[in-house]
């Protein structure tokens, strides 16, 4: 089974999280911890780069929902970038594009803060 990895890179005041592998119910706690770490440091401008993510399930999307309120309440946002077609389809099916900003590339996402 494909593992899941998340890597945090700080670019100025924007935190970029690079996801790779499978984000499903099993690996969700890992991603949750990574986001929690970032938010604990009061870094509320977050871009999640999906370039190397092969799969996301509803539980994976749940993590975004779980944090977005706190992040926005602190004047930040979670923006998404570099979604593969397959990953985008899940976001689209569940109605996420109405709630989250989704960009083709990371640079663009960063520039929207």
């Amino acid at each position: 089974m494909n593992g899941f990895q998340v890597r945090h890179v700080a670019k100025d005041d924007v935190s970029i999280l690079y996801l790779s592998g499978f984000l499903d119910a099993h690996t969700v706690p890992q991603f949750e911890n990574a986001l929690e770490e970032v938010i604990k440091k009061k870094r509320y401008k977050i871009v999640v780069n999906f370039k190397d993510l092969d799969y996301i399930s509803s539980a994976g999307l749940g993590v975004f929902m779980g944090f977005i309120e706190e992040v926005r309440a602190n004047g930040g946002d979670i923006k998404l970038s570099n979604l593969s077609k397959r990953v985008y389809k899940v976001f689209d099916l569940l109605g996420f594009p109405a709630l989250f900003e989704i960009y083709d590339d990371e640079q663009e996402a960063c520039s929207k803060f």
Binding site: A25, V28, P29, E32, S57, S58, A59, G60, L61, G62, V63, F64, M65, G66, I68, E69, L94, G95, F96, L99
Partner: peptide, 14 residues
């Protein structure tokens, strides 16, 4: 926790 993730992701509710 698992229930909450699936709920949030699938139902767009937090």
């Amino acid at each position: 926790k698992q229930l909450s993730f699936s709920l949030m992701g699938q139902m767009l509710v937090n």
